[in-house]
């Protein structure tokens, strides 16, 4: 598979930026990436029982922040097809240490981590904690813990704390046992819906 070799076998290709790759390479790599996760995960590869995980997901009220198949809150990422987008190890880390690996915004003009937790102290005495939705040199947009949007000019800010490594999502390392974590990971890995 030529496109696979473009990424995996050719060390030079692996070390190049996209701007150094020819048009044919781009098409091949895009086709390869698109093919990733398209195959079904066999039950044997799952670390736990997905049905048990689904029940835990419901009982822990994960849907207050996450959408699956159109239902749920939107503070966190949509999980409808998370099993296609993320591997087992990443899903486990996301449950145990949610702030460890935040996704990068793919939009160049909004570069930076998505879901970055920030705390803002304003000149008029407000303290706002939430996720950064966007930011430029003069303004920042924050979605707070109460699910409210704030548009804040940096001139009006006393301090802006970017809390790397943290997340609004709690860690379940101490509240769910290993079997439960495995079941949740198994359930998430089976979420492959959407188009």
């Amino acid at each position: 598979m030529r496109q696979r070799s473009s990424i995996l076998s050719d060390q030079r290709a692996a070390k190049r930026g996209l701007w150094q790759i020819t048009g044919d390479d781009v098409r091949d790599i895009a086709a390869y990436v698109w093919s990733l996760g398209r195959s079904d995960v066999s039950v044997a590869e799952l670390p736990g029982d997905p049905d048990e995980g689904a029940a835990l997901y419901a009982s822990m009220d994960c849907s207050s922040c996450h959408i699956i198949d159109g239902a749920g809150g939107t503070m966190g990422p949509v999980l409808t097809n998370i099993g296609r987008l993320r591997g087992i190890d990443h899903l486990r880390e996301a449950l145990l240490d949610p702030g460890a690996t935040l996704p990068e915004n793919p939009v160049a003009s909004a570069a930076g981590s998505i879901y970055l937790l920030v705390s803002v102290q304003t000149r008029d005495g407000r303290r706002i904690t939430g996720t950064r939705v966007n930011e430029d040199t003069f303004t920042i947009q924050v979605r707070d813990e109460e699910d409210m949007f704030h548009s804040i000019r940096k001139d009006d800010i006393v301090s802006l704390q970017k809390r790397f490594g943290e997340s609004l999502m709690p860690s379940y390392a101490d509240t769910v046992n290993e079997g439960g974590i495995n079941a949740l990971v198994a359930y998430l890995a089976t979420l492959r819906g959407g188009s």
């Binding site: 070390k15 930026g17 915004n105 570069a111 930076g112 981590s113 970055l116 790397f164």
Partner: peptide, 14 residues
């Protein structure tokens, strides 16, 4: 053809 002999991964975002 490209004649570069390597590449870079820039530290980005935040």
């Amino acid at each position: 053809q490209p004649f570069m002999g390597g590449g870079e991964q820039a530290l980005r975002g935040d």
